[in-house]
C-alpha cells in the first residue's frame, strides 16, 4: 500500500530549536573488539574501522556523527570504558548559536 497522504507534519518550532550535536570520543587502544556499540546503536552511527589497533583488532569508528541523538547507549554498554558521548559545545563553526 502506498500512502498518498503525509501522515506527519513539520513541527512549528523547527526553525527556532537547534538540535544538540554529539561528540563521540573513542579510545581505540582500549577497545577489545566486542562490537556491542556497533551492533546495539539504535541509529547505526558506528562501524568497524579498517585500521588495526595496538591489540590487533578492529575498533569502531564513527560513520556519521550527525545521526547520533546522544542516547549514550554505546558508552553505557562498553565493557572497556573506551567510548563516551558528550554534547558538542557550540563555539565557532556551529551555526544557529543561541
Amino acid at each position: 500500500m502506498v500512502l498518498s497522504k503525509k501522515l506527519w507534519r513539520t513541527p512549528l518550532d523547527t526553525e527556532k530549536i537547534s538540535l544538540p550535536k554529539a561528540e563521540i570520543t573513542i579510545q581505540p587502544d582500549l577497545c577489545k573488539g566486542c562490537d556491542f556499540c556497533i551492533e546495539f546503536c539504535p541509529r547505526k552511527v558506528l562501524e568497524k574501522s579498517d585500521q588495526l589497533n595496538k591489540r590487533g583488532i578492529y575498533p569502531p569508528k564513527v560513520a556519521d556523527e550527525s545521526k547520533c541523538t546522544i542516547c549514550g547507549f554505546c558508552a553505557a554498554i562498553c565493557p572497556d570504558f573506551a567510548i563516551s558521548v558528550t554534547e558538542k559545545k557550540c563555539k565557532e563553526g556551529c551555526e544557529d548559536e543561541k
Binding site: 577489545k32 553505557a76 554498554i77 565493557p79 573506551a82 563516551s84 558528550t86
Partner: peptide, 29 residues
Amino acid sequence: QHPLTKYLRSERMPHIWCEGCGNGILLNS
C-alpha cells in the same frame, strides 16, 4: 578522556576481562 575516569584506577586499565564479557558492563553500570 572518559567521564568515569575518576571512579577508576586508571593505571590498571585496560582490565583483564575478555572481549564481550558482562563484567565490564556491570562495572560500567
